[in-house]
């Protein structure tokens, strides 16, 4: 980019392996890592959710507060929040072409996904100490 930056690195050297998003394959890789994580957790988590159907508050708290259940749920919401942030960003980049709007949407998605993860994690921790 700048011609006289005083560095020996060529323009090609600076962009190599980084791709159009400017961050190389990090996004792609993290999407895969989180996918495998959620994939391992999805079936047990779904069974837990169906098991909770129709139960009263006390029973629900007891199940969700059990150590193994709480840890599974916590791992699931962390991986999900990260994976859904990455996935929605790809969708935004595909369909939103106005640069400013795209930036706003990407930030909103990032913050919102993070908030969903933190809220869920807070609730799980609170449930483990009894409500």
């Amino acid at each position: 980019m700048s011609k006289a930056s005083g560095h020996m690195r060529t323009d090609l050297g600076k962009v190599r392996f980084r791709g159009a998003a400017g961050s190389g394959t990090a996004h792609f890789w993290q999407q895969r890592v989180t996918a495998v994580g959620i994939g391992l957790l999805a079936i047990p988590v779904l069974v837990i959710i169906v098991m909770l159907l129709g139960r009263n508050h006390a029973a629900t708290v007891q199940i969700l507060g059990a150590p193994l259940v709480a840890i599974l749920m916590a791992l699931f919401v962390i991986a999900s929040a990260w994976h859904m942030k990455l996935g929605m960003q790809v969708i935004i980049e595909d369909y939103v072409h106005n640069e400013k709007l795209k930036l706003a949407a990407i930030l909103a998605n990032q913050f919102f996904s993070f908030a969903v993860g933190v809220v869920s994690l807070y609730a799980i921790l609170k449930l483990t100490s009894g409500v």
Binding site: L64, A81, I91, V116, L127
Partner: peptide
């Protein structure tokens, strides 16, 4: 389904928060 699951994760956050909030919120 990826987009739908995004909404589903929000629903799960609501459910967890409701359970943590106590009997009234959970109801």
């Amino acid at each position: 389904t990826g987009a739908a699951l995004y909404a589903g994760t929000i629903l799960m956050a609501w459910g967890l928060l409701a359970a943590a909030a106590g009997p009234t919120g959970f109801a």
